[in-house]
């Protein structure tokens, strides 16, 4: 009791938080200044270190041609489509494995065997099988969402405490009913954690596959084109944008999770 109070008191003590935040700004601003100075040093440097002015012009440029908007739309669409397909398959297989022993014994080892290959290592294979276009990218993104969700579903369903399962026995519910009414709701918060991971992985796989498969639209493709043209300004914009979009998606899905599972007593 006293312990928790004293923790809170240190929070209110932080009346110097404005100082802290000023400190936090110091390094980014400093880096920015160094960057800017470097970009003005020589023509060679201007190529590696795009000045803030250049970055602004680059942003205006890709915005006005509509390239950026198209790229964002293509990448987001790919990520969510992959999450939807791969996630659904992953959930189904995970649930089947958790429910039927035979499926567990048969699918489990195969799943763990195939999962060992890093996704990006599969790129050359898919490129030979499906070409360098959208189908290959989609398969990679689907797989990236599929793997974590199989595991999350399987684990979460297994974790449901047996006392909840016993309620199903006592009420003489059928197997399907026990699953829908008891197991699934109890496991859902953890499965959702798996979904939020799958989303993060899907976003990574989207950008990665767009960088590695040359054909088609998407933020990764714009980046590779910019790299070929040595356009550091556009690369910086896109890299920051990818980080920002990833952060926003993660933030949003966590908020959704908090709202959906507000009945759950955390800690």
């Amino acid at each position: 009791m006293a312990y928790s109070v004293s923790i809170m008191s240190t929070h209110t003590l932080s009346k110097y938080s404005f100082l802290n935040s000023a400190r936090g700004w110091l390094i980014p601003v400093g880096l920015l200044l160094v960057w800017e100075v470097m970009s003005r040093q020589s023509a060679e440097n201007a190529y590696a270190f795009a000045s803030i002015e250049q970055i602004y012009h680059g942003l205006v440029e890709i915005l006005s041609t509509g390239e950026l908007q198209q790229g964002i739309a293509a990448s987001l669409q790919r990520a969510f489509l992959g999450l939807l397909i791969g996630g659904f398959l992953g959930f189904s297989i995970g649930a089947v494995m958790a429910q039927w022993r035979v499926a567990d014994v048969l699918i489990g080892p195969l799943y763990h065997m195939l999962r060992q290959v890093p996704l990006m290592g599969l790129v050359p294979l898919f490129s030979l099988w499906l070409g360098n276009g959208d189908p290959s990218k989609l398969v990679v993104v689907c797989l990236s969402a599929f793997y974590p969700l199989v595991l999350a579903t399987y684990e979460s369903l297994h974790q449901v405490e047996s006392k909840y399962k016993e309620v199903g026995d006592v009420l003489k519910l059928s197997r399907t009913k026990t699953f829908i009414k008891i197991l699934l709701p109890a496991a859902l918060p953890n499965i959702f954690t798996g979904i939020s991971f799958a989303l993060a992985f899907a976003w990574l796989a989207t950008i990665g596959s767009e960088i590695l498969f040359s054909a088609g639209a998407g933020l990764g493709n714009i980046m590779m084109n910019a790299q070929a043209a040595s356009r550091m300004d556009i690369l910086i914009i896109l890299t920051a944008l990818i980080g920002l979009l990833g952060f926003l998606m993660n933030y949003l899905i966590n908020k959704v999770g908090q709202y959906l599972f507000r009945w759950r007593n955390l800690r």
Partner: peptide, 20 residues
């Protein structure tokens, strides 16, 4: 000093840094 920079840079996936 470092936490904000660290937390911001952390958001950028490694693979997206390959072109830069």
């Amino acid at each position: 000093f470092f936490s904000p920079v660290f937390q911001a840079l952390r958001q950028v996936p490694s693979i997206a840094l390959i072109p830069i």
